[in-house]
Simulated scan of single mutants.
Amino acid sequence: MRTPRIALLAGVLVGLLLTGTVHAGATTGAPVPTGTKALTHNPLYRSGKLAVPCDRHPDDSGSVAAAKKHLTAILGCLNASWSKQVKKTGLAFGKPAIQFMTKAGRACGSAWGRYHTGRYCSSERRMVIMIKEYAVQAPADPVMLHLMAHEYAHHVQNLTGILPAYKNMPAPTKAHALAQSRRLELQADCLGAVFMASVWSSQDYRDEDWKEVVDHYRLSGDERVNTERSHGTGKNRVAWLQRGFTGVSPAACNTWTAPASRVA
């Protein structure tokens, strides 16, 4: 690809803050699905392949300003791609806000976690992205692209009723709650990879760039970086990434009907 390589960043987690109520979409549409069917039979799964390529984005590096410029351009492509996809479901679409941080602080009403690189604040429909040194050095690195795509996937889950249905699921034990969290997070991994596949060639990425993403997430499973089993094992994270990247469609990302072994 066009940016210098960076070392794999073991121990990085993406985060999700689920607070407050979900805002209505900026456009009108069909009623948002609710309950179990919003998870298992969501119209998003029938929306077909993503097919909105990105223009080549600015890839200057070496400053926070350059990183913000590139990541803002990626956000524009995410908006263009997912707005078309969500509208195909008949549901309303609204753009998320974005906030960039350069040091740990508070976001979504709580302190920034040690391993967080991004968060999605559901009540505010806002993505929060941490710009660390590796993002300054290589803002177009494919691992950074997936971070953006993963957090945006939480926004898609919000718009299509998946995230609200998840919030309302009963969780009689901590184990139940963590299992549900893994299904949500692994789905976001998969949907992020769907977007990546749809823009891959337009951004001049190559096979070795995808290998970097896979290797990174293989080393970022719960067994390595998370004391709680909330995001999935490295093996399962890679499996859902591969499903999304190969399928290029949300149909590949229905984690809610997958057997427990595939969302461990």
Rank of each mutant, 00 (worst) to 15 (best):
residue 151 E to F: 00
residue 215 D to W: 06
residue 263 V to G: 04
residue 176 H to W: 02
residue 180 Q to R: 11
residue 184 L to A: 06
residue 151 E to Y: 02
residue 96 P to I: 05
residue 179 A to K: 07
residue 17 L to E: 13
residue 20 G to C: 06
residue 59 D to Q: 13
residue 62 G to T: 07
residue 217 Y to D: 09
residue 220 S to Y: 05
residue 231 H to D: 02
residue 35 G to R: 13
residue 116 H to K: 11
residue 10 A to V: 10
residue 137 Q to Y: 09
residue 49 K to W: 05
residue 227 T to Q: 10
residue 59 D to K: 11
residue 183 R to P: 01
residue 128 V to S: 00
residue 186 L to V: 00
residue 259 P to S: 08
residue 97 A to T: 10
residue 112 W to C: 06
residue 86 V to D: 03
residue 53 P to L: 15
residue 70 H to F: 05
residue 166 Y to S: 00
residue 141 D to Q: 13
residue 5 R to S: 11
residue 256 W to G: 00
residue 226 N to I: 12
residue 125 R to Y: 04
residue 201 S to C: 13
residue 145 L to T: 10
residue 7 A to L: 15
residue 169 M to S: 06
residue 103 K to G: 09
residue 213 V to Q: 03
residue 45 Y to C: 06
residue 123 S to L: 02
residue 124 E to G: 00
residue 25 G to P: 14
residue 118 G to M: 01
residue 31 P to C: 12
residue 209 D to S: 12
residue 47 S to P: 06
residue 64 V to P: 03
residue 7 A to C: 05
residue 35 G to N: 11
residue 84 K to E: 14
residue 19 T to P: 05
residue 199 V to Y: 14
residue 7 A to S: 13
residue 6 I to G: 07
residue 248 V to S: 09
residue 210 W to P: 02
residue 65 A to R: 07
residue 57 H to K: 15
residue 70 H to E: 08
residue 46 R to G: 03
residue 260 A to G: 04
residue 67 A to S: 07
residue 161 G to R: 00
residue 260 A to D: 08
residue 103 K to A: 15
residue 17 L to D: 14
residue 49 K to L: 11
residue 122 S to E: 02
residue 63 S to M: 04
residue 220 S to V: 11
residue 125 R to F: 08
residue 4 P to E: 01
residue 207 D to R: 15
residue 94 G to K: 11
residue 249 S to V: 02
residue 126 R to N: 05
residue 25 G to H: 06
residue 72 T to L: 10
residue 49 K to M: 04
residue 154 H to M: 05
residue 216 H to S: 15
residue 50 L to A: 14
residue 107 A to F: 11
residue 262 R to H: 10
residue 72 T to Q: 09
residue 192 G to R: 08
residue 154 H to S: 01
residue 173 T to M: 03
residue 53 P to T: 12
residue 129 I to H: 01
residue 100 F to M: 09
residue 41 H to W: 10
residue 155 H to C: 00
residue 187 Q to T: 04
residue 264 A to C: 01
residue 2 R to G: 06
residue 95 K to H: 07
residue 13 L to Y: 04
residue 86 V to K: 07
residue 207 D to G: 14
residue 230 S to E: 09
